[in-house]
Design a protein around this nucleic acid. Structure first.
Lengths: 158, 158
DNA sequence: GTCGCTGCAAAGTCTTTGCAGAGAG
DNA sequence: CTCTCTGCAAAGACTTTGCAGCGAC
């Protein structure tokens, strides 16, 4: 039976640990731990979605209306997190970049071109295969992403 | 031995045939066959690179200085071609979208994050696996793309 | 206190659109 | 002839940056 999973627990780290990693990262680079940075990290952690900078900003404004977090700070923090490999971004179609926390088990994406939903999945065989390929070609893999585009089950039934 | 290939002949269609397909497509949609559209298609066909709208525009200006093709037309034509699945786009990192002719054998991409080079490869096993996965999940696949990021052999040696 | 961070608004990019004249069918 | 295309320039969308005051350390 194929070893495909879409219901895996992909938050492999507790928020507390993630936060400590983040603080560590900041310290190492003489950067400051601010409430805005924490809120951004926490909102990413608590979201199961792939967020655009704008949607992340909206979420934060809803949850923390008092803290007037600027969109520029969201961009700056996402860039920081991406640079440090704590989040990864995905871009496709006309829409802009979407970000997700990297502290998840690696997974690939099924993207419905009708409704835009992104479903995550993991397939051990493909993962293994990717390593074989890069070894073979002398390529030093740092990351990879796979997207399958099409129409999801839901949309097909409509 | 793994069935990996990076030296496949991926231009599976003659330009003449491609052009006819394009004309056919235009006719079906009551669109007009213009010199600009032909030049764009032809430049894409003759390029082995993944082109951004801007680089494609530059190429065209070099090759056809007399024909003052506007960047807007390049965008419009790429959108048309992408919509009709004659080209596919790839976007990654900070850089914008890159386009390539879809009339190639399907392949995946190795992207060097140091020098930006994109190497194409095909792996039968992964291809097969993707079909198994989508069938399993009731997802109707229309397209897929896989990118592996890392450092290419060349850059490792520097 | 120092030095990095933040929000704001302005400046950049990249992409799309409105329009009037040009050109394909 | 008609109706779509095109180039241009202006508008839009998204992202980055400069700056002065704020806040972490």
């Amino acid at each position: 039976m194929p070893n495909i999973s879409t219901n895996f627990e992909n938050r492999t780290i507790k928020y507390e640990d993630l936060l400590n990693d983040f603080k560590q990262l900041l310290k190492e680079n003489s950067l400051k731990f601010t409430i805005q940075r924490e809120v951004i990290l926490e909102t990413l952690y608590n979201s199961d979605e792939h967020l655009t900078p704008e949607s992340l900003h909206h979420l934060i404004q809803e949850r923390q209306p008092d803290l007037k977090t600027g969109i520029a700070t969201v961009y700056r923090t996402l860039a920081l997190l991406e640079e440090s490999n704590m989040v990864t971004s995905l871009s496709f179609g006309a829409q802009g970049k979407k970000y997700e926390l990297g502290a998840k088990e690696h997974h690939d994406h099924l993207i419905c071109t009708r409704c835009g939903t992104i479903t995550e999945f993991v397939d051990e065989e493909i993962e293994a295969r990717q390593h074989i390929i890069t070894d073979e070609l002398g390529f030093k893999m740092s990351d990879h992403s796979m997207q399958i585009y099409g129409i999801c089950k839901n949309c097909q039934n409509k």
